[in-house]
C-alpha cells in the first residue's frame, strides 16, 4: 500500500499500488534518459527496471521500457509528467492495454565443482538456459524469461555457486495485431 501524494505528513487517502510496465517513445537526443530518470528521482517515483535502446535509427527514436509501482493516481501522474517532457512522443501503459508480453535476459556465472557443478547444469537445462561459456570450474548461462523466472533461476543458482549476475531489465510489447 502506497499513500497518495499529499501536502501533509499523514496519509489522507490510502490506495492499493500496482506494478506497471510503461513503454515510452522518445527522440533519441542527448540527455533524454537523464531527463526521464531525473523526473522519477525528483518526484519520488520508483523505477524497478529500465531498458532503453534506439529502435528506429533513421528517425532517431528510442523506446524506453520502465517498470514501476504506484497507485492508480501516481501512475497517471507519472504518465502525464512524462508526456510533458518535450522529447517524449508517447507513453503507453502496457499493463493496461491487456496482458503484455514481457521478457528479460540475464547472464549468470556459476563457479563450482562436483555436486554443485552437476546441479547447476541440471537446473540450467530445466530452465532452458543456454551455456555461453564453460571452463573446468565455471559456466556462464543465458536465460530469457519473465522477471519471475529470472528471479527464480538466480535464486536457485545462488545455492550452487553463483558469483555474478547481469540483467537487461524488462522489454515488453502488447499482444495482438495492433502496433504502437
Amino acid at each position: 500500500m502506497l499513500q497518495m501524494k499529499t501536502h501533509y505528513p499523514d496519509a489522507t487517502r490510502v490506495e492499493p499500488s500496482h506494478r506497471r510496465t510503461l513503454a515510452i517513445i522518445v527522440d533519441n537526443e542527448p540527455g533524454v534518459l537523464a531527463r526521464i530518470a531525473g523526473l522519477f528521482s525528483g518526484r519520488g517515483y520508483n523505477i524497478e527496471s529500465l531498458t532503453v535502446t534506439e529502435t528506429e535509427h533513421e528517425a532517431h527514436i528510442s523506446r524506453i521500457t520502465i517498470v514501476t509501482t504506484g497507485t492508480d493516481s501516481i501512475i497517471q501522474q507519472i504518465k502525464s509528467q512524462l508526456e510533458r517532457l518535450v522529447p517524449v512522443h508517447r507513453v503507453v501503459d502496457l499493463t493496461l492495454t491487456g496482458e503484455a508480453v514481457e521478457r528479460e535476459l540475464c547472464l549468470v556465472k556459476v563457479v563450482g565443482k562436483g555436486d554443485h557443478r552437476v546441479e547447476a547444469m541440471r537446473l540450467a537445462s530445466a530452465f532452458g538456459a543456454r551455456t555461453l561459456d564453460a571452463t573446468l570450474t565455471s559456466f556462464v548461462y543465458e536465460l530469457t524469461g519473465t522477471t519471475d523466472e529470472v528471479e527464480r533461476f538466480i535464486k536457485l543458482m545462488t545455492a550452487v555457486g553463483l558469483v555474478e549476475v547481469s540483467r537487461t531489465g524488462v522489454a515488453a510489447m502488447a499482444r495482438g495485431a495492433e502496433g504502437m
Binding site: K5, H7, S73, Q77, S80, E83, R84
Partner: peptide
C-alpha cells in the same frame, strides 16, 4: 493546458 496538473493533488 498541462495534463499533469489535472488530478495531481485534488481529484
Amino acid at each position: 493546458i498541462d495534463p499533469s496538473s489535472i488530478n495531481k493533488t485534488v481529484k
